[in-house]
Amino acid sequence: MIELKNISKSYNEKEVLRDISFSIPHGQAVAIVGKSGAGKSVLLKCLIGLIKPDGGTIYVDNKLINSMNLRQLQNIRSSIGMVFQFGALFDSMTVGDNISLALQKLTNLTGNEITERVIDSLESVGMTGTEDLMPAELSGGMKKRVGIARAIAIKPAYLFYDEPTTGLDPVMTDSINRLILKFQQSESVTSVIITHEMRTVYEVADRVILLHEGGIQFDGSPKEIKSIDDAIVQQFITGDSTLV
């Protein structure tokens, strides 16, 4: 369970997040959408403790993460898998090492078990046999898949995705959406998906939160967002710039 109460964050007098409050029950897939610069990624980084909010509280599994020291944050983070926008794979390591690094740090698995887990994780994202490749040898879509493999390898309770389908072709977008759905259903994780692709929202999410000018403009199901009578919401989901 994740619970945010009155979260606010500003950069150089620009209010990025304003009085954000919501909670995510266990097992739910929540899509957080909004225009570029709406504060989606900042909100996600607040959830994992990478950015400290200026005000408000964030609870993950009933633990307040705002005031945690590094060691306490590390404990919480060991239950969270994070998929970054461009993969954020470590350039100097092979695909296999990228995945095994976290396993060595966060688990008590033996060398053989780690190798098996790396192979399994890559297989589950359709990247079998890429262990020895370097990140520079991968396409954008492949990097995102390896990023997902790295996140799921630690068998997290929470999976956070930062723009998992941005910049991908429609086929690869569908492939990533199916992967998110697969882990959501098979591993019963709690997912938070930052995106501005409505296709991802409709295919993957149980619930959608639309951020606008630092606040929550809409919070409801993907079905509800289609029918709500709100110009800002309709502008976002239809992509019609003349609506507002």
Partner: peptide, 18 residues
């Protein structure tokens, strides 16, 4: 610097590394 701007340092932190 490249690790910072390509979010690799954030990724390290998210994997519980200091």
């Amino acid at each position: 610097g490249t690790m910072r701007v390509s979010e690799q340092i954030d990724a390290l932190e998210s994997l519980s590394f200091d």
